[in-house]
Design a protein around this nucleic acid. Structure first.
Length: 190
DNA sequence: CTTAGGATCGCCT
DNA sequence: GGCGATCCTAAGC
């Protein structure tokens, strides 16, 4: 089919490192609320910083399930964090979504997050879950179902790479990725 | 602008 | 019983 752009789609079977970069510039919506993914981190079972490092447990069981599903966990007893499971079945790999550029459902986000600059609405894993209304109720949902939509980036974006944030093990691994030039990152890259 | 402390839950040792 | 894949506020410089 000449002149038809090949249907680039997100490959959830990729390893976490690769999917985390594929997701930069992609669009995610939950119930019509969301925007452009500008920051991700990769985790897999070989990684001491990963929830899956010590094997399958009650909390992380979704991480060992089918790729393309949401793994949602509670962080510091207060916040929720959203991951996308990837790789082969039972591999325990996932990509943490750390920041989104808010594009759709701004009113809803502002309602859930309270008054603040738009740059801060989804700048952090806990913040973006609050803005999109994500909690444990969404744990295990498919990203290809009717509630979530995930659309690939139109062009190949410039990607920044750096060490991950807020972890105590595996601190040097360059597994954090960001959209170059985005003002919606949770923290700058250096 | 940077830093320090508190909130609060569930997992794993 | 300890400690997070965090965020917010307040205080200091």
């Amino acid at each position: 089919m000449p002149f038809v752009q090949p249907a680039v789609q997100i490959n959830f079977s990729s390893d976490a490192d690769h999917l985390a970069q594929q997701l930069i510039g992609a669009f995610i919506f939950y119930n019509g609320v969301g925007g452009r993914i500008v920051e991700t981190e990769a985790y897999d079972q070989s990684d001491p910083a990963s929830h899956s490092f010590r094997g399958k447990t009650m909390r992380n069981s979704v991480m060992f399930g089918a790729a393309g599903h949401a793994y949602v966990y509670r962080s510091y007893g207060l916040h929720w964090c959203l991951n996308i499971v990837c790789g082969e079945l039972d591999r325990g790999a996932a990509v943490l979504l750390r920041a989104i550029e808010p594009l759709q459902g701004l009113d809803q986000m502002r309602k859930l997050r309270g008054p603040m600059r738009d740059e801060l609405l989804c700048a952090g894993p806990g913040r973006l879950c609050q803005a999109l209304g994500i909690s444990s109720a969404q744990n295990g949902l498919s990203l290809s179902g009717s509630l979530f939509s995930l659309l690939p980036s139109a062009q190949k974006p410039g990607i920044l790479t750096g060490p991950r944030i807020g972890i105590s093990k595996g601190v040097d691994a360059p597994l954090r990725f960001g959209l170059m030039g985005s003002p919606f990152l949770s923290k700058p890259f250096r």
